[in-house]
Design a binder for these strands. Structure first.
Length: 429
RNA sequence: UCCAGCGUAGCUCAACCGGUAGAGCAUCCGGCUGUUAACCGGAGGGUCACAGGUUCGAGUCCUGUCGCUGGAGCCA
């Protein structure tokens, strides 16, 4: 079986051949060190003059950063080594010599790194983020799959807006104008009537001219939708899902969190139940903290930061004014000015990561709402049909993957949470 | 779209009141038998974003353009 650095301990005391890339090298006369990176970890390979072929000793000096190589040697426990193991090399073979590598081990600016994003991904921090992102996705899908959800998946090319009309990317579809999806939710509602509990997970697109650390033009969203579930049950599902994913990362990705210097005590607190406060209580909380806000206002980035920092775990704010929320949300029967919805604000000031609601399930009410919002009724005919034929109470939410990854990793900018971020007017590489 | 800040060597940054363009890293040459972003000595490397203006003299001051970064609004 192939030997990789992540599992090098199994080869202790034995000879092994490792393939990878030269991360760094150092030399001290008759001793040369090649630090090898193989995609699973990093290990130092020691070359002693006279104990390796002259060609290999020479190559250990002339090989360039990020050249691909194969190193053979004796795996040895070494207390001084960061990973606990070292390779006493017996041979070094060049696979491909790298041209002078633009990204050094020193500091670089954001503009330069983004221009070289395809290479930046090889660095230790980006490698750690990629693995944690993958773990979060797997954890959340495991949670849903293990709880009887059926992966439905929804179209990316859609004939009409999901929520508004100003934020869509238009696409030419054989002469007809269609749009890249900004949500799969409406389709999810139709799928839920088939399988009861469904979810979709895929890229979504917003053409807003947003230029902040929390925004991408293309981001991945996980959207569960459940038949016969009310708002309270929806919030319970969201907190269970998020808590499960965070605890999984803590259990399985400790080394990567350490690479990112993430304070894991903050993550350990992320267990259900999460605090739930009403919109009006949130407004009062903000006013007590000196924010100028009045009932009816939506929360901006500042307000979200204050709310997120007020608790040791994510907080769920529910019953927002219907006027500032989407047309498909069900109104609170006790007070029809309020929507049966919630937002989950991550702790530590990372902002909104989940937005959900109980959906409007009364046919007449939904038709009225579509007219009020000046949406084209013809485009929503199929959506209204879901109410026409055996309507049912149902709820769901959308979880922004990249914001969740940023929060779990403790990253200050969302651009590092996806391999190739699509930023405002930036699509290279 | 609006507001603010920044564009100097391959990279990260200096250059005081307007007076000859600098350092570290990277690259190349040399040294060192245990280095940990190794270290030590040497060399090469510049249209100071671009265009105009003020001035005896502009990297520095003014105007415009372009680019980048952060924020607002909107949202996940």
């Amino acid at each position: 079986m192939e030997t990789v650095i992540e599992k090098i301990g199994a080869s202790a005391g034995k000879e092994a051949t490792l393939t990878g890339w030269v991360y760094n090298k150092r030399s001290s006369g008759k001793v040369r060190f090649v630090i090898l990176r193989d995609g699973t970890g990093v290990i130092q390979c020691v070359f002693l003059k006279g104990q390796v072929p002259d060609a290999a000793f020479e190559l250990a000096d002339s090989v360039t950063q990020e050249s691909s190589v194969a190193v053979t040697g004796l795996v040895r426990e070494e207390k001084r080594a960061p990973g606990g193991f070292e390779l006493t090399a017996t041979d070094l073979k060049l696979i491909s010599l790298a041209e002078p590598y633009p990204i050094t081990l020193k500091e670089h600016g954001v503009e330069f790194l983004m221009e070289h994003r395809h290479l930046w991904l090889r660095s230790a921090r980006q490698h750690a983020v990629l693995r944690i992102r993958s773990e979060i996705i797997k954890a959340m899908r495991d949670y849903l799959d293990d709880n009887d959800f059926v992966l439905g998946d929804t179209p990316i090319l859609t004939p009409a807006a999901g929520e508004g009309t100003t934020t869509l990317f238009p696409v030419d579809y054989y002469g007809e104008q269609v749009y890249l999806a900004q949500t799969g939710q409406l389709y999810n509602e139709a799928i839920a009537a088939s399988v009861r509990k469904t979810y979709c997970f895929g890229p979504t697109f917003r053409a807003e001219k947003s230029k902040t650390r929390r925004h991408l033009m293309e981001f991945w969203m996980l959207e569960p939708e459940v038949a016969f579930l009310d708002l309270s049950g929806d919030m319970a599902l969201a907190e269970e899902l998020v808590a499960y994913a965070v605890q999984r990362v803590l259990a399985k990705r400790k080394p990567e969190l350490a690479t990112l210097e993430r304070d894991t005590t903050k993550l350990e607190a992320v267990k259900a139940p999460f605090p739930r406060i009403s919109y009006l209580d949130a407004v009062k909380l903000l006013q007590d903290k000196g924010k100028e806000i009045k009932p009816g206002d939506d929360f901006g980035g500042d307000e979200e930061t204050v709310l997120g920092e007020a608790f040791d775990r994510p907080v769920m704010i529910h019953h927002y004014p219907a006027a500032i929320k989407a047309f498909y949300m069900k109104r609170d029967p006790q007070d029809t000015s309020l929507a049966l919805c919630f937002d989950m604000i991550a702790s530590e000031g990372y902002g909104e990561i989940v937005g959900g609601s109980q959906r409007e399930d009364e046919l007449a009410e939904l038709e009225k709402r579509i007219i009020e919002n000046k949406l084209p009724p013809e485009a929503y005919r199929w959506y209204v049909d879901v109410r026409r034929y055996g309507s049912f109470p149902h709820s769901g939410f959308g979880l922004g993957l990249e914001r969740t990854v940023a929060w779990v990793c403790g990253l200050k900018h969302i651009r590092e949470t996806i391999p190739f971020p699509r930023m405002l007017e930036k699509v290279y590489p």
